Lab assay of single mutants.
Amino acid sequence: GTEDLKEEAKKALKKGDKERAKRALKKAGLSEDQIKKFIKEVL
């Protein structure tokens, strides 16, 4: 589900894998702006 994808994105970001995080967030249905915001909040 969406929460799982967001968790996956957080883990990817902590490993420095932004591309993987972006893919997971796109799958979760987030827009580009939401993805940028999510990444900023996590990092």
Rank of each mutant, 00 (worst) to 15 (best):
A21I: 03
D4K: 12
R20I: 07
K26H: 08
K37S: 13
E3S: 09
A9S: 02
L25E: 00
Q34C: 05
E8L: 11
A12M: 10
A9I: 06
A9Q: 01
K27F: 06
E41L: 10
R20F: 11
R23L: 11
V42C: 08
L13G: 01
D17V: 02
Q34I: 03
F38Y: 05
E41V: 06
K22Y: 15
E8Q: 10
K6T: 07
F38H: 02
K26Y: 09
E7V: 07
G16N: 05
K6M: 15
K14S: 09
K40A: 15
V42Y: 14
L25V: 00
E3L: 10
L5C: 06
E32G: 06
D4E: 12
K15L: 14
E7F: 07
K15P: 01
K10L: 12
E3I: 10
E32K: 07
T2I: 14
K11M: 12
A28T: 03
E19V: 08
E32D: 13
F38S: 01
D33S: 11
K18Q: 13
R23D: 11
S31F: 03
E8Y: 13
K22V: 15
L43F: 09
G1H: 12
L25H: 00
G16P: 02
D4Y: 13
E19C: 08
A21R: 01
K37Q: 15
R23P: 00
G16I: 02
A9P: 01
K27Y: 06
T2L: 14
L43M: 11
K11W: 09
V42D: 03
K22M: 15
D17T: 02
K36N: 14
K15E: 15
G1I: 13
E3F: 08
K6L: 15
K22F: 14
D4T: 10
I39K: 01
K11D: 12
E7W: 08
E3C: 07
L30M: 12
I35A: 04
G16Y: 05
E41Y: 09
K37W: 09
L43Q: 07
E8R: 06
D4F: 13
Q34Y: 05
G16M: 04
L13V: 05
E41I: 08
E8D: 06
S31K: 05
E8G: 03
K37C: 08
I39T: 03
E3V: 10
T2F: 14
L25Q: 00
K36F: 10
V42T: 08
D17A: 04
K37L: 12
L25A: 00
K27N: 07
K37T: 11
V42K: 04
L30I: 02
K6N: 04
K36V: 13
L5A: 08
R23V: 12
D17R: 04
I35W: 03
L13E: 00
E19L: 10
K11S: 10
K37N: 13
D4Q: 12
K14A: 13
A28Q: 03
G16K: 03
K15I: 14
L5N: 04
E32Y: 08
E3K: 09
K18N: 11
K14N: 08
K27L: 14
K10D: 02
K14H: 11
K14Q: 13
K26N: 06
E8K: 06
A28F: 06
I35D: 00
K27S: 08
K37F: 08
K26E: 13
G29N: 04
L43V: 06
D33E: 13
K18S: 11
T2Y: 13
K22N: 07
L13H: 01
E3G: 08
E32S: 07
D33G: 07
E19S: 07
K27W: 05
L13Y: 04
D33H: 07
K10Y: 12
S31I: 02
K40V: 10
L30N: 01
D33A: 12
V42L: 09
K22C: 12
E19W: 09
L43I: 08
R23M: 10
K18M: 15
R20G: 15
E41M: 12
R23T: 10
L13C: 04
E19G: 07
F38N: 01
L43C: 09
E7G: 06
D4W: 15
D33V: 08
A9K: 01
K11R: 13
K6R: 10
D17G: 03
D17H: 07
I39R: 01
E8A: 08
K18P: 11
F38T: 01
A12T: 02
A9F: 04
A9N: 01
V42R: 04
D4H: 11
S31V: 03
L5T: 03
K36C: 10
G16A: 03
A12K: 02
I39H: 01
E8C: 06
A21P: 00
I35Q: 03
E19A: 11
S31A: 05
F38D: 00
D33R: 10
A24W: 11
E19Y: 08
L13N: 00
G29E: 02
K18V: 15
K14Y: 14
G1A: 13
L43W: 09
E19R: 08
T2Q: 11
L13A: 03
E19F: 07
D4L: 12
K10V: 13
R20Q: 11
A24V: 13
A24R: 03
E3M: 10
D17N: 07
K11P: 01
K11G: 06
A12Y: 14
Q34T: 04
K40L: 14
K26M: 12
D17Q: 08
D33N: 08
K15G: 10
K27D: 09
I39L: 07
K6P: 03
K37Y: 08
E32P: 11
E8W: 11
K40P: 02
F38I: 05
A24N: 05
K36R: 13
G1D: 13
A28I: 06
K14R: 13
K15Y: 11
L13D: 00
Q34V: 03
L25W: 01
A24K: 05
V42A: 10
I35N: 00
K10S: 06
A9T: 02
I39A: 02
K6Y: 15
A28R: 02
S31W: 02
E19P: 06
A24G: 02
K14F: 13
K18D: 08
L13K: 01
I39C: 05
I39Y: 04
K40I: 13
G16L: 04
K18R: 13
L30P: 00
Q34A: 10
K27V: 06
L25D: 00
L5Y: 11
E19D: 09
K27E: 12
K37A: 15
K36G: 07
T2C: 06
V42W: 15
L13S: 01
K27T: 07
F38K: 01
V42H: 13
T2R: 10
R23H: 09
E32T: 07
V42F: 15
A9V: 08
I39M: 09
G16S: 03
L13R: 01
D17L: 07
K22W: 15
G29V: 00
L13F: 04
E3N: 10
K27H: 06
G16W: 05
G16E: 02
F38L: 04
A9E: 01
K36L: 14
V42M: 10
K37R: 11
E7D: 09
D17K: 04
G1L: 14
S31D: 11
L25C: 01
E3Y: 07
L13T: 02
I35E: 01
S31P: 04
E41S: 10
A21Y: 02
K11H: 10
L43E: 09
A12Q: 05
A28H: 03
L25P: 00
D33P: 06
V42P: 02
L5R: 03
G29W: 01
S31H: 04
A24Q: 06
K18C: 13
G1R: 12
A21V: 04
K26R: 15
T2H: 12
R23F: 06
G29F: 02
G29T: 01
D33Y: 09
K26Q: 13
K22G: 05
A28M: 10
T2E: 12
K10N: 04
Q34N: 05
K18T: 15
D4P: 06
L25M: 03
E41G: 08
Q34K: 04
K37P: 01
E41C: 10
E7I: 08
A24D: 04
I35M: 05
K27G: 05
A24F: 15
G1F: 13
E32Q: 07
A28L: 12
K37G: 09
F38A: 02
K36M: 13
L5Q: 04
L25K: 00
E7C: 06
K10F: 09
F38E: 01
E41P: 01
A21S: 02
A12E: 04
A12I: 04
A21H: 00
A24L: 15
L25N: 00
K15R: 13
L13I: 10
R23Y: 07
L5K: 03
K18I: 15
K27A: 14
R20S: 14
L13P: 00
S31Q: 04
E32I: 07
A28E: 03
R23Q: 14
A28N: 02
L30R: 00
G16F: 05
A28C: 05
A28S: 05
K18L: 15
V42N: 11
L43T: 06
A21Q: 00
D4C: 12
L25F: 02
D4G: 10
L30S: 00
L5H: 06
